[in-house]
C-alpha cells in the first residue's frame, strides 16, 4: 500500500492538476480534495496548490483559510498531518497561522515568472528529506505577492530553529526578507514554499526534475513510519 496524498482544489486554484500529477510521478496515490468537503478521505498528507483562490480577494488566501476543508487541515496539521503549501497554498498557511509571517506584494510590483535557483536549507522536514542539506535546485517561480515578511524577532527565531526550508539564490525575485523562499512550522510537518516544485517533475514540461524531491520526501517519510 502506498501513501495517499490529497490535493485541495479551491475556486481559483490553478496548479492542483500539476500537484496531483507530481504526487503520482513520485509514486504516491493522488487524491483530489474539494474545498467545501469536511472530509480528508483519510489521506496521509495534503498539498495546498498554487493559483488565485477566491480571486485573491481581500488578501491572498484570506478567504480560503476559512473554507470547510481547512478546518480539518488546520486540526490535522496540529496533530502532525504533513501539509505542503505551494505559492497560494503558502499564503493560505500563513493566513491560517500554521506558519508565521505573511506574503506581500512583490517589492518591484511586477508579477514574476522565471526558473529560480534555490538552496534547500533544511532537509529534515517532512517534505525535504529527499534532498541533501544545502542542495541547489532550479524550479519555476511565478507570483505577484510572494514577498515573505515577518518581524525581525520571528525571522531570527526561524533561522535559529532551522525553519528556513529554502532560500533564493542569485536573485531575490520578490523582496522576501533574508531571501526566504520557504519556511516550516516547529514540528516540520507543515511547509510553505513560494516557488513551484510541482512544475519541475518531468523533462518535457519543466526546466529540471528537481522539484520531484518534495513529493518523494513525503512518500519516504510515510513509508518509513
Amino acid at each position: 500500500m502506498t501513501a495517499r496524498i490529497g490535493v485541495v482544489t479551491f475556486p481559483g486554484s490553478l496548479d492542483d492538476r500539476d500537484a496531483l500529477r507530481a504526487v503520482r510521478l513520485a509514486g504516491a496515490e493522488p487524491v483530489a480534495l474539494w474545498h467545501r468537503e469536511k472530509d480528508l478521505q483519510q489521506v496521509d498528507g495534503v498539498v495546498l496548490p498554487g493559483g488565485f483562490s477566491y480571486g485573491d480577494y481581500l488578501r491572498c488566501g484570506a478567504i480560503s483559510r476559512f473554507s470547510p476543508i481547512m478546518e480539518m487541515i488546520i486540526e490535522g496539521a496540529k496533530e502532525g498531518l504533513p501539509v505542503l503549501g505551494i505559492c497560494n497554498g503558502f499564503q493560505i498557511l500563513c493566513e491560517s497561522h500554521l506558519l508565521p509571517g505573511a506574503l506581500t506584494r512583490n517589492d518591484h510590483l511586477h508579477f514574476i515568472c522565471r526558473d529560480q535557483k534555490l538552496r534547500v536549507e533544511n532537509n529534515s522536514t517532512a517534505w525535504t528529506s529527499s534532498y541533501e542539506k544545502g542542495q541547489e535546485i532550479t524550479v519555476p517561480l511565478k507570483n505577484g505577492e510572494g514577498g515573505y515578511i515577518a518581524d525581525e524577532r520571528t525571522l531570527d527565531m526561524l533561522e535559529a530553529e532551522g525553519r528556513v526550508v529554502a532560500r533564493y539564490l542569485e536573485l531575490n525575485p520578490n523582496g522576501s526578507r533574508r531571501d526566504i523562499a520557504g519556511v516550516s512550522n516547529a514540528a516540520g510537518n507543515v511547509v510553505g514554499l513560494m516557488p513551484h516544485p510541482e512544475h519541475a517533475v518531468e523533462p518535457l514540461t519543466g526546466p529540471t526534475t528537481e522539484g520531484l524531491g518534495f513529493f518523494t520526501s513525503i512518500l519516504k517519510q510515510l513509508v518509513n513510519v
Binding site: 506581500t104 506584494r105 517589492d107 510590483l109 514577498g147 515578511i149 523582496g175
Partner: peptide
C-alpha cells in the same frame, strides 16, 4: 493599513 514598518510598494508607486 499596513503597519508603519511594513514596506508599501503600492503606496511608493503612487
Amino acid at each position: 493599513m499596513l503597519k508603519p514598518e511594513i514596506l508599501d510598494p503600492q503606496g511608493q508607486a503612487v
